[in-house]
């Protein structure tokens, strides 16, 4: 007389739940608009000399790079610009600052530079604002900008200096000189 009852279903219907962490890291990727807007200067030129020194507060060693400016695409610069990046060696001590960019004497570069609170001009977005200019006049740097609503510029990599100048000028016309 005993029969096995067919299961009549579970009380709770299963549903798929995907967990996603909202996390971050140390270096925000900038969009082209952000990098242009945040830069006081966008200039091209050659690195002519470098030296390291403590900042005025003697808290950080900074490595300075003198850039002989050949063209300015945003902002007004003198014939030379002092680019400073944290880190370097001084007084028998070395300092590494994660994310700092570096330059070499003799490099031909196109750089986006932002004014720091201590008055130094630093590469915008850390390394993101530095582009090397090859002998053919094309720039080489980070592959992709962050995409945003401001525009469709996804990369400058491989563009000519003239193309970059046009893009920067167009952004400045759209958004003003910014910082």
């Amino acid at each position: 007389m005993f029969r096995t009852l067919r299961r009549v279903g579970l009380l709770a219907a299963p549903c798929l739940i995907l967990l996603q962490l909202a996390l971050a890291s140390d270096l925000p990727r900038l969009s082209f608009a952000e990098m242009t807007d945040n830069s006081e200067l966008v200039v091209a030129g050659n690195v002519t000399r470098t030296w390291a020194d403590w900042d005025p507060d003697h808290k950080y060693i900074w490595t300075h790079y003198e850039l002989a400016v050949s063209a300015a695409y945003k902002g007004s610069s003198g014939q030379t610009v002092d680019i400073a990046e944290p880190g370097g060696e001084r007084d028998g001590m070395g300092m590494i600052v994660s994310g700092a960019a570096g330059y070499r004497v003799g490099e031909s570069v196109l750089v986006f530079l932002s004014r720091m609170p201590n008055g130094y001009l630093r590469t915008s977005g850390l390394g993101q604002g530095k582009y090397l200019v090859d002998p053919g006049g094309r720039v080489h740097g980070q592959a992709n900008f962050k995409t945003d609503a401001a525009g469709a510029v996804t990369t400058l990599d491989g563009m000519s200096v003239g193309q970059v100048r046009q893009l920067v000028s167009a952004r400045v016309r759209t958004n003003g000189v910014g910082k």
């Binding site: 270096l27 944290p86 300092m95 590494i96 720091m116």
Partner: peptide
């Protein structure tokens, strides 16, 4: 201001590590 400059300013890195060797 010294710290903030090393960070890359207000729009700079989210955080950074400075190591002396």
């Amino acid at each position: 201001a010294a710290d903030l400059s090393a960070l890359g300013g207000a729009t700079g890195v989210i955080a950074f590590t400075v190591s002396s060797y």
